[in-house]
Each structure stands twice: as C-alpha cells, then as structure tokens.
Design a binder for these strands. Structure first.
Lengths: 341, 341
DNA sequence: AATTAGCACTCGTTAAGGTTGAGTGCTAAC
DNA sequence: GTTAGCACTCAACCTTAACGAGTGCTAATT
C-alpha cells in the first residue's frame, strides 16, 4: 500500500512528533541522516500521505502531525520493539528480586513501577478471586444480629463481609454448617463455589436447621464486592505533565474517568489475551479521544489472570511502552506462579 | 482592635471574594445594601485594613483581596455558622437513613458526600483499629511455609496478612497457641494487645514449643499496615474546578500530595479534638500555600476516633464547610456508635 | 520520469503601540 | 468625619506589523 519511502517518512514523522510534540516540517525530516531527499520531495510525499489519511495539518502553514490512522500504521508496521535500556532493566530486576508476601503488594508496586518508568498512567487489573480455590471459610459472630463471614483462598487472599445473621438460627447450627462447607468445598475453585454450594451441599443440609438457605446466600455474598478491588492505578498525575493536557478541562475529564472503577474495569477487561493497542477514538470513550491505551495480559497455566496497561496521550512512546509491558507481564507470570504453586 | 465599620467592610470583602474570586473594589462594597458609605470612605478603610495586614492588593489599580490574616480574622470573629440549607439537610438525612453493614463503607460514602456537597476535596480519617477490641484471631496455613493470619475486631473489621511460618513449628502446636490466645485475649483493646501478648500470655507459653516467640511476632505484625487504610478521599478532581488552580503545575503539586497517604495522615491527625481551620501557610506544606484545610474530629464515648476534613482554596466557603463538618461529625458519632455498641 | 530549486503565499506567533476601564490615593469641599 | 472630584495606575484587550516556519506549485535539472 505505501511505498518504502513513504513508510520511511511516516516513521520519521511519528518518531519526531513523539519526541517533540510539535508539528513536523519537511525540512527537519530532510535534515535527518536517514532520509536523503530534499524538502521538496518530502513535501510531495507528505502531501500524498495526508491525502491517504496518515497525516494531518493543524493549519495550512504548519507542519504535519500523525493522524490516528497514522499511529495505527506506525504501531502495526513500523515500530521496532527493541530491548529495555540499562536503567529499565535494572529497575525491573531489582523489583522482581524483592521477596514479597502479599500478592496485592506485587500488583500495586507493578503499577507504580510502570508509571514511574514511563511517566504515563498505569492501570493494572489484578487476578480475579474466582480463579482461586477455597482454602477456608469462617463465620465469626459479632453480636446476636451480625457476623463477619471470611473466605480465605489458596493464594492467601482474604475476602470478608459483615452480614446479618438469619434470625432464629442458633450459633451451634451455623458452626455445623460451616464445618460441613469447609470439609466439602475446600479446594473448589470459587468460580464453581456457588453452584456446588447448592447442588452438592444443599441436599445434605436439609437435616439441619431451617435457616441454612439464608446462610448459604450470606456466604455467597462475600464474593460480591470484587471488581473494584482488582483495579490498581499508578501515576495518575503523570497525565498533568503531558503538553497535550495542559488544559485543565481536558485533563479533568480523564482524571474523573480514572476514578470510576467500573469504567476502568470495562476498559481493561475487554482486551483479548496478549498485547493490545487502542489509539484515540478506537476506545470509544469521548474523554479518551486524545489518549492511547496499551494493555498486556498475564496468565498462569494458560489461564488469563489479569491485565497490565498504560494510558497516555496518543503521542505515546509506543516502542518503549510495548517492550516494557511485554517484559513485565512475562516477569509477573513467573512471580505470580508462586501463589498458584 | 478593629472598629465595627472595619469589621463590617472586611466581612463584606471576604464574602464577596469567596463568591466571585475577583479582587473587590470600593464601589462594589459601597453598593451593597448593608454598608451605607461612599466608595471614598470605604477606600480609606480599605487602605487602613491593608496597612493592618488584613487585605492585600494584587497590583495598584486592582481591588483588594483578603490576606491569610484577613481570612483568619474572618473565621475567628466574623463568619456566621448558620444552618444547612434544604438540599444539604435532605442529602445528609437520606445518607444516614441508609442501613449499611460495613463501617468502611460509611467512611468512604461520607467522604464522597462531603466532596459532593462542597465541590472541594474531602479527606476522612477512619477510626484506628487500635481502639477496637479483639474478637477473634486465626491462623490459616496455606502451605508448609506460609500462612494467613487474621484478626477480627469487635467492630467487624478484619485485618489480615500473609506471613512465613516459623520453621520447625508443627501445625497442631500453632493451633494450641492460637486457641490459648483467643481464650485469653478476647475483648482486649488492640492497643494493649502487644503488651498483654508478652506479659500475660508469654509465661504460660513456655511449656509449648520453642517457636512460640516467632509466632507472637507474626501475630503482632498483622496490625502493622494500619495508617494507609485509614485515609479516605473524595472528590480529588474537584480541585481542578477552582479558578485559582487553573494552572496545571500548581494543581499537580496538590494532587501529588493527595497521593501520599503518610503526608495526608500527618495533616489530618495533628488536629486536636473539635473543629480546626488551617489557612494557607498555617499548614506548613509549601504546596498547600493556597489551600485551607478544615477538620472536625468525631468520637465515641469521649474517645476520639477519627477526623473528617475538607481541603479547598483559601478562598473557601468557610461558613458552609464549617456547618457541614459539624453536622456530619455529630451524625457520624451517632451512626458509628452502632459498631461500638 | 523523478527530483529539486525557487518563489509566492498562508497563517500562527510575537512584539509594539493604543485604548479602555476598573480601581486607587489624595485633596478639597461639605 | 464623610464625600465628591480628579489625576493617576495598570491589567486587559485590541489592532497592527513584522517575522518565520512551513506549504504548494512551477519550472529547471538530473
């Protein structure tokens, strides 16, 4: 579709624009070592590239900037992934050398490191609790009306919720049920927890007190508040350092969006396994028209666990971000396997 | 110190400036119904007020704006607290009518409501876990090296931490110790937990396995990660709507600060019981020179539990914020007493 | 046929000058 | 003690002009 020279020029323009954030003129491209043509020739090519939709002009007498389509072509065909530089390698290495006990800590620190290394905002989706298996279930009464229900998973994750005790259900009955549940459901993936609760265990519970049905609902409800606990952000204020967002109103829209976990959740969940790049309007949220989102999934044993992502301006250092995300997701997979044994 | 007329004029200037965010001229004060003097007279008084340090002038030919000292005098002597308006009353009433199970939810929602009603940023410090008493302690082994230690308090709060199992300590020994701890320490305030752990219980544990000392350390460490879980923020992006923060660099400093929980913690902990107002440089952080922080503590049974606060520009609607904080802290005390029974 | 030099043209940016108007301080009259 | 009057200040705004980075087109060059 594009000639070799056009690709070369498009590549040069995107690269330069990512660095300078200013429209790029024909002369400055011509002066680069790697393109041996006069400004006039470059101009003709640029004009063609604009007609094809890869470039646009802020106004007649300015240089060109890449269009969304231009970025898309750049990331699809031109960008060279390369390897991490010394500083990045060192930071990542140090990070993964640290011994941490809690998985959540790993996730949050990954988000922080990502935003620190890139100067963009990071969005990390932690493993969903449903991939874990039940380790222990417990109900601790606080008084005669309420109790705390606690679920511990094989990864050491603890979910807990304060619940109302079904009236007329004596404590020793509750204990019996909990013991039974522990005996029967230990090792069961939480994803199947709910169904097993009713199919396998419910029958056996008929001989117990009448309130057992409410009790099961109660146990089940502990797993409800999941979504928002899976989202971790890093470097949200980095958005403010980008020249394209020096306008307060624009940046407010984006920061507001970052506070709505359901939106973020959808944004970061919708990606398929592997690396995904969404440029500008490709991600359908009006507030993110000037942003690109790059995400990479991480898995254990071929089962996707979560996503790490970087949100930045469309004028993003794609090469750097891509290689960082790939490197980090691979490292995370190794590290997290510890919890999944 | 100030004449009645000076107080009247200062009050008018602060009020008007809070509303308009523009320097106030003598003519506009004179035209207000409540001050029956000509612009010239007002000018003379303004000049005096400036000399006394209550007002300042952005430049010679502009009106006056309140200085920090001016705001200070205003909140100390002039501001009338008044009562909540219908909308505020309704919102608060609805909020406290809702039945919520988790205390954390109450705290977070309070923060959201505060920022929603004021258009400023809210900082809420939740009750510290150490005021609670121990309800239940448990250690769940994940594998032969790690375990999850869980502490449930009388308020239904759950603290948990993944810890390394002291090597060579068999599981049934651990169970014995945990049972003993539960029997002995239930109902003990967590504040005294540590000392009781060593004075009362340690002696009795001598007859058990050698590793019990590490085990106690392990239990103790669960209570370490407190600070950051107590801070709740609401409406952080509201800062961006204030005209004094339309400059991205200024607002970045403040937003960065809001991400540092230790700083926030110090900021909001240092206040004595009751209402406190810190104006501009009074709160010693350079980034907050253009901000005011108003905090109110809430207690149960004369013991301070936490703080609710509003961060906004020095040009803040003091009257409104003060009455909201007072009203809310009172309501919170009633609501939270439920958890403290 | 492809490339390039040359040149007129466009248009945002910057600086300079001029006008406006809100606001002041001072003085003199009330 | 208060106020009217007036000269003065200065940010904000507008206009104008010069500048220059960049373009598109045409004609000459390779």
């Amino acid at each position: 579709m594009l000639t070799e020279r056009q690709r070369m020029i498009l590549n040069a323009i995107v690269d330069d624009y990512i660095r300078s954030a200013e429209p790029i003129g024909s002369r400055s491209i011509s002066k680069r070592g790697d393109v041996g043509f006069s400004p006039a020739t470059i101009r003709n090519e640029m004009s063609d590239l604009e007609e094809l939709g890869f470039l646009e002009q802020p106004h007649t007498s300015a240089g060109r900037i890449p269009s969304h389509k231009g970025y898309r072509y750049y990331v699809d065909h031109l960008v060279r992934h390369g390897t991490l530089d010394a500083h990045e390698l060192e930071t990542v290495k140090l990070f993964f050398a640290e011994k941490v006990q809690e998985m959540e800590e790993v996730i949050q620190h990954t988000a922080n490191m990502l935003s620190g290394l890139t100067n963009y905002t990071s969005i990390v989706l932690g493993p969903e609790v449903f991939t874990n298996t039940l380790k222990h279930l417990q109900i601790i009464p606080l008084n005669d009306k309420t109790a705390v229900a606690i679920i511990v998973t094989n990864t050491g994750h603890v979910e807990n919720k304060t619940v109302a005790i079904p009236p007329g259900l004596p404590m020793n009955e509750i204990e019996k049920v909990v013991n039974l549940l522990n005996a029967r459901l230990q090792g069961v993936p939480l994803l199947q927890f709910k169904s097993k609760l009713y199919t396998e265990v419910a029958g056996e519970l008929n001989k117990y007190a009448v309130g057992y049905h409410e009790l099961l609902n109660m146990v089940e409800s502990v797993l409800e508040n999941d979504e928002k606990d899976r989202i971790f952000l890093g470097g949200t204020t980095n958005m403010l350092t980008q020249p394209e967002f020096k306008d307060v109103d624009k940046v407010k829209n984006i920061l507001d969006l970052l506070e709505q976990t359901p939106v973020l959740f959808k944004l970061v969940t919708s990606s398929p396994t592997g690396l995904q790049i969404k440029i500008g309007s490709e991600n359908s949220l009006a507030a993110m028209n000037d942003c690109s989102l790059i995400t990479a999934t991480y898995s254990y044993d071929d089962q996707p666990l979560g996503t790490i992502g970087i949100l930045g301006p469309t004028r993003m250092e794609y090469a750097k971000v891509i290689r960082l995300l790939e490197h980090l997701s691979a490292n995370m997979e190794v590290l997290l396997s510890r919890w999944y044994k």
